[in-house]
Amino acid sequence: MKNVILSICCLALLSSCGDTHELSDEGLLVPLTVMEDASIPSIEINGVRLHSETFGNPSDPMIVVLHGGPGADYRSQLNFKQLVEDDYFIVFYDQRGSGLSERLGKEAYSNVQVYIDELEGVINYYRQNANQKIILAGHSWGAMLATGYINQNPNTIDGVVLAEPGGFTWDQTIEYLSKTQQIKLLEEGTNDFVYLDQFITGSDHNTLDYKFSLSLTGDSNTGDAIIPSYWRFGAVCSSASIELAINNPEQLDFTGSLKTHDQKVLFVYSELNESYGREHAELVSSEYKNVELHEIENCGHEIPEFGWSGYYPIIKTYLEEVL
């Protein structure tokens, strides 16, 4: 009983002293974004401030790297910097509401077109002249976004490097997601995911982004033993985009004009992601007319980070061929 009373006294003291914080306090649980920290490199595209960096000679062929999610960021894509040695200009950016980019309300993700327009804005921001070669390198959702752009602008992109896009139609995407998101109520991983809801509730971006990061325990069946690198997940971006896809599945169909894109596309999938596999890779990649398909060994879904040693030489060879 003494211990209980002592605990309550400690609790009362802690509650009243200045050492307690709010989950929403800036910088305590998630890093600051470009809106709070002016030292973070950024650009403004379509009225939204994006975390963005470039490496290499700006007049070299430009590779725009598109991260996954929606809601993830380009920290796990940084291996692409190695292509600077091969005389490419590498452009990274965190999509709206993701990583260290500006946070927005859910209305900012009301259609897929905002992502495509944002990508076009980034290309135009960095492009030196109309003759500069442009390559899109997308991972997962980023590969879907790249395809969405190409579907609207076939034959304007000189090279396309795609790693495990969920699908180019909603049916393909939901088929893949249903394999990766299997809920098993009696397993630790599932309960860790839902049990957290009684510990943290919130409506501000700091709290929601932090809570989202705690759900990334690495307990997935995409073949990755550890959690990929990231700075800060965009929880509102992620949930609003999923809502958008469920309510407007036709917007996730990127195949209308895809067959008119003539250039060869590099498409890779991982050896260890059992939810994907060659069969799904063949199904999705067949939406393109001209595809070079490769399996990347000894890695799961996070190919750009954990499968880079196998991925890099394939990219290099492909780019030498198509440019």
Binding site: H21, E22, P31
Partner: peptide, 13 residues
């Protein structure tokens, strides 16, 4: 993930 993340007490979580 975030080197400056704080171990601390938080209220009204």
């Amino acid at each position: 993930v975030y080197a400056d993340i704080q171990d601390a007490w938080f209220k009204n979580t």
